[in-house]
Amino acid sequence: MELSLFLSLFGFLWVAAITPGPNNMLLTTSGANFGFVRTIPLMLGIMFGMQIMLLLIAFGVGNLIILYPALHLFLKIAGSAYLLWLAWKIMTAAYESLEVKDHPEKTLPLWQGAV
């Protein structure tokens, strides 16, 4: 693999891994609600999905968009429709209030914030 391609792939992987995107938010929420051990299958699924996406990029699937410009338009429309559907689902979801019953005035101690 050429160095420029490797650096581009590494840059994409770095940004995808550290940005606070949906995968990181989902893992954070799952870990907070269910604990680390019960979140491991989700984490592995996200890791495998990322590897599949990187393999598709490495095999040159992006060239299909260059060969078929209509595919690029279709993907933009389908992606936009999916984001609009997700926004609608979030907007119409039932609101659930979280209540702290034992000590409502007490906040998390420093060590719990660090953990």
Rank of each mutant, 00 (worst) to 15 (best):
E105N: 08
L55V: 15
M25V: 14
T29N: 07
L13A: 13
S30R: 03
L3K: 08
G60T: 06
M25E: 12
G49T: 12
N33Y: 07
G113L: 14
T92G: 09
L86A: 06
L27Q: 01
T107C: 05
L71C: 05
F36K: 14
M50D: 06
L7Q: 02
G45K: 12
Q112Y: 07
S80D: 04
L42V: 09
L86F: 07
P109M: 02
L67G: 09
Y82F: 13
A58R: 06
L98E: 13
G49V: 11
I57W: 03
L71G: 02
L42N: 03
G45M: 14
L3H: 03
T39C: 00
N63K: 05
M50Y: 07
Y68Q: 14
I18D: 04
M91I: 09
L71P: 03
A16E: 02
K106G: 07
P20T: 10
L26E: 05
L83F: 00
I52T: 15
K101T: 14
I77Q: 11
F34T: 01
I66E: 08
G113R: 13
G31E: 00
N24E: 09
T28E: 00
L64W: 14
F48K: 14
H103V: 08
N24G: 13
L108R: 07
N24Q: 15
A70G: 03
L73P: 01
N63G: 12
F59M: 12
M50H: 08
V37Y: 03
F6T: 11
L64M: 14
W85S: 04
M43V: 04
L73V: 12
Y95C: 02
R38D: 05
W111L: 11
A17N: 12
I77E: 06
L42W: 01
P69M: 08
L13G: 00
F34D: 00
E2D: 15
A32T: 11
A78W: 10
V15C: 07
L84I: 10
L71H: 03
T19L: 13
N33M: 09
W85R: 07
M25D: 07
I18F: 08
R38N: 09
A16M: 11
K76G: 06
G35Y: 00
M91D: 02
L64G: 08
P20L: 10
L55D: 15
G62F: 05
F36A: 15
N33P: 01
L42K: 06
L26P: 02
N23R: 05
V100K: 11
H103P: 01
N23T: 05
E99Q: 12
Y68G: 04
G60Y: 05
G79F: 09
H103A: 11
V15R: 09
G113F: 10
V15H: 13
L54C: 08
F12K: 11
V15K: 10
P104E: 00
S4V: 15
K101S: 12
L56T: 11
Q51I: 10
L71Y: 05
F74C: 04
L27P: 03
E96L: 08
T29Q: 12
F12L: 15
P41A: 00
K101A: 07
V37D: 03
T107P: 02
L7W: 00
F12M: 15
N33V: 01
L64H: 07
T28Q: 03
V115W: 04
L108M: 11
G113C: 10
P20R: 10
Y95H: 06
P22I: 08
M43N: 03
F10C: 04
L3P: 00
L7Y: 00
T39L: 00
L54N: 03
T19M: 11
L108G: 06
G21C: 11
K101W: 10
L26D: 06
